[in-house]
Design a protein around this nucleic acid. Structure first.
Lengths: 224, 224
DNA sequence: GAGAGCAAGTGATTTAGTCACTTTGTGACT
DNA sequence: AGTCACAAAGTGACTAAATCACTTGCTCTC
């Protein structure tokens, strides 16, 4: 069973090999589909299928008329499912439940890590005066994970937040907690800065619990 | 910017719509590529690109000569990157670091949850007498996450373990900790069963720390 | 020098087929 | 009657040769 080495999956691996051999990072251009087809001695539709697979995981990006480029998540070990099922109140609560389990420990770790906190502080203050939209509010949690010093944890939190990005923003717009969020974020930041792991952990737990309560109280709208 | 609704991404959404409207689950067959092409009034290569994207995220599966079927991870919110970068000692340690941050809290949650522990106990005992290979040893951690009652957490741990499945197995085979693992797993299980959250948390932390030390002591081989 | 416009390169998609694999059912043989 | 071999139908895998649409950069003009 499955003695088949693979189908055109070998192509995706080969393309990834090219990207890594050339030491390309996100944003860099990769050879055109036509050239890849020539190089592997196959036809364009076949190479396109391989590229589509890579596109689905964010390893490459297409830009019509311009070229194909290395995607932002090529080095991720875990990623948000781009083909996510439709949202329900239950799924949102499960998501918050997962964060409630993880993020307090992350905050505690950030408090005892020696990472730079500049970007975390920026995320706190930027949330109040949003120059780039409401997505900034979520940024705090990703930066908090980044401050833990473990890039995998950062990916994990980032993925969890990305899954429901639009919905999270919608929730935040409905119940304008911007000020309360700001206060709570700042309190967490200060605990982290002071190296008080226990306080950071508890404050994060409280913060997420407030969000959970808000979601639980909400009667859900339909999905757009 | 990006006023373009999308390209043939609409196809992937449409296919997912068909799957959900027909209430299909993993293993169920979906219409053939030719029929989908006819239904959407496009050609087969185009529909194949869309299906490939879905294949990359585990939403569908191809079986040559048989058909296309719904994949196992279609309802996941987060998934392991199938195009993972090559392994390094550092990346393995980062992975363990992430688990060290998350799993103790998961174990504590499992101890106070009211979930059934049958499968968890089975995972403990099966690890010693492996009927299905060494993958069973990792199963314990997934079942532990399942026992927490939060499916998102289960997905998360499952994804983290899947990323380095082969490598993890390799590590385990090299340093045959099977007996020590069994003892530690059993201790964690018993703490969970007894509802002792603090003990479950600490035992899990110790267990993962033992693995971390073992990996840190290992001088790494090349990748196959 | 600045702008309009053309041309080359690229992805997006079509059309029309061939090959390889799996499944299933039918028929012949035992 | 049961079983096995084989053919047929359906499916995915892939090829081949185009055409359309978009981006970019260059050149030519004013």
């Amino acid at each position: 069973m499955d003695v088949t080495p693979s189908l055109s999956d070998r192509l995706t691996e080969a393309i990834l090999g090219i990207i890594r051999d050339a030491d390309l990072g996100p944003g860099d251009a990769i050879p055109s589909a036509r050239e890849l087809a020539k190089r592997f001695e196959i036809t364009t539709p076949t190479i396109r299928e391989a590229l589509r697979k890579l596109e689905a995981t964010g390893a490459v990006e297409f830009r019509h008329g311009s070229g194909t480029y290395v995607g932002p998540t090529i080095n991720n070990v875990v990623l948000a499912n781009p083909h996510r099922p439709p949202i329900t109140k239950e799924s949102v609560l499960q998501l918050i439940g997962a964060r409630l389990l993880i993020e307090p420990a992350v905050a505690a770790q950030a408090a005892i890590a020696t990472q730079s906190l500049d970007k975390l502080e920026a995320a706190v203050t930027n949330a109040l005066t949003p120059p780039g939209g409401p997505a900034f509010a979520l940024n705090f949690h990703v930066e908090l994970a980044a401050a833990s010093g473990n890039p995998v944890v950062e990916e994990l939190i980032g993925s969890l937040l990305k899954v429901r990005l639009r919905e999270q923003q919608q929730i935040r717009q409905l119940y304008d907690n911007r000020n309360r969020d700001y206060e709570e974020h700042r309190a967490i930041f200060e605990a982290v800065q002071a190296g008080d792991a226990a306080a950071a952990e508890q404050l994060t737990r409280d913060h997420l619990d407030h969000i959970r309560v808000a979601v639980e109280a909400a009667e859900f709208l339909e999905l757009p």
